[in-house]
Design a protein around this nucleic acid. Sequence first.
DNA 1: TTACTTTTTTACCATAGGTTAAATTTTTCC
DNA 2: GGAAAAATTTAACCTATGGTAAAAAAGTAA
Lengths: 186, 186
Amino acid sequence: MFSSKPYLDINKLVKWNLEFDLGLTNKSVKKGDVFLKEGQPCKHLYYILKGFVRIYYLDLEGNQITHWFCADDAIITSPFSYVKGERNILYFEAMEDTELVLISASQLNTLIQHVPELGEGMRQMNAEFAMILSRRIMSIHTQTAEERYLNLMEQHPLLFQKAKLSQIASFLGITQQSLSRIRKNL
Amino acid sequence: MFSSKPYLDINKLVKWNLEFDLGLTNKSVKKGDVFLKEGQPCKHLYYILKGFVRIYYLDLEGNQITHWFCADDAIITSPFSYVKGERNILYFEAMEDTELVLISASQLNTLIQHVPELGEGMRQMNAEFAMILSRRIMSIHTQTAEERYLNLMEQHPLLFQKAKLSQIASFLGITQQSLSRIRKNL
DNA sequence: TTACTTTTTTACCATAGGTTAAATTTTTCC
DNA sequence: GGAAAAATTTAACCTATGGTAAAAAAGTAA
């Protein structure tokens, strides 16, 4: 759903890791693993080398609400926790076997000190992320659930092979029954 | 709705403007003025020294949909245009007499070269903005319109003195008639 | 295959919010 | 103040989506 490639080249990152002795760590997670849970502080950015991750949270009744789907080259974190130190409410679930590179805040700062233009890149990345979120709010305010579903199908067809319809439904902001009804009516 | 104060101190900005000869410009707009329109490229960040601004866009039927309300010390821009150079779709309307400081991308870059920690600040500001947008999507997905209205009343009571109910309704994602009905049922 | 579990669909009714139109209240301006 | 315009409320009706429950389909494992 979002690629960080224009802002952070993973090959360069690997090179810088050696050059500046950053000590970045890797993490492999199996399909189905929930590698970040509500209440666990999120101390890293996660660069998804390869795989597919669903970010969700729980509503008051305990239902999982999908907040985001993330594929190769996405950089994800729980901003509430990572940036502001607030209690983390997000779950990160690997929807398939996934390879991650973990980047702590201090490692990122060190890296940016050595490569100042990366600071600009990260700033732009955050700005683009805010834009994507703005667009999503706009689509909620101007489109029907059916239109949002058709857009998603068109823009991310692979998503429907990797995620359950119930997970996609909550991402679209509707129940799985409503999504099923929308699909029936084509 | 959002203050940039933790990330950019306006007094320092004024000082830096002189110190580094940035050439920042000011702009005064009268109540009711629409100082950015759809199709006009947005070349600046706007620092709101004093005033109140509504950001809106038009849906397919031409209805104004309020995207954001912004008060003193907010930094606003049309990210689609400012960051990505895409066609601007946002309108910026002064809801009361408003004093702005304009910051171009090149001025910002110059400033960050002189004050590197400001780059980090801007990055965090963008991250916080993404968080606020995430929270808004979450509230749409987990709360009723009535709950969102009550939250808004509680968190931004002054907003209801400055904005029309129809403008607040579209911000909440409902029609003005629905908002009226919600208010009647207390 | 069969049995079992999970996911998806279907159906029925309930409800929040949309649509249209008109009435009412508030604001603006002469 | 009073007329006109704008904003807000009210009402009747309509529609999309939610809630519940059950059936059907798909996936999994022995």
